[in-house]
Amino acid sequence: MIGLVLVSHSRLIADGLCQLADQMAGGGVKIAPAGGLTDDPYTLGTDAALILEAIESVWSEDGVLLLVDMGSAVMSAEMALEFLPDEQRNRCLISNAPLVEGAIVAALHAGMGNRLHDVNAAAEDALNARKVERVPENVKDKTCG
C-alpha cells in the first residue's frame, strides 16, 4: 500500500487534512503531514527536512505520493526527494492535484490498494471537478424574486 505525505505552508492545514484523509483511507494507509517549519511549527512555510522525515515515516516499497499546496511547497518537496537514495526517489511522486481534494481522493484510492500512478491519476482528476453549477444571472433573479 502506498504512503501519502501532505505538504502545506500551514501546520494546521497539513495536520487537519491528515485527519480528514485518515478517515477516507479507513485505516491501513500511512499518511504523514509536513506543514510549517521544524522549529517554528506555526510559522507559515515549507521545510524540505520536515518533508523528508514525513516521507521516511510512511515509506514502503509501493511508493509515496506527495500532495503539496503551492509555491515553495513544490520546491521543498523536490528538494526532499533529492535527499533520498535513487531507488527510493524513483518510487516517489509529487502530484499536480489540488491539496485538499487530492488528499481525500488519494487516501481513498490508496486505501483500496491502488498503485502509485493510479492513485495519482485519480487525485489529479480533482483538477477538473466542479463544485457548483453556476446558474446564469437572469435565472437566479427569477428564482430569488
Binding site: M24, E101, I104, V105, L108, A122, A126, A129
Partner: peptide, 15 residues
C-alpha cells in the same frame, strides 16, 4: 436534474 457522474469517483459523487 444533475449530470450523470461516475460513482467510482468520490469527487464526481460530491457533485
Amino acid at each position: 436534474s444533475s449530470i450523470q457522474v461516475d460513482v467510482k469517483s468520490i469527487l464526481q459523487l460530491m457533485q
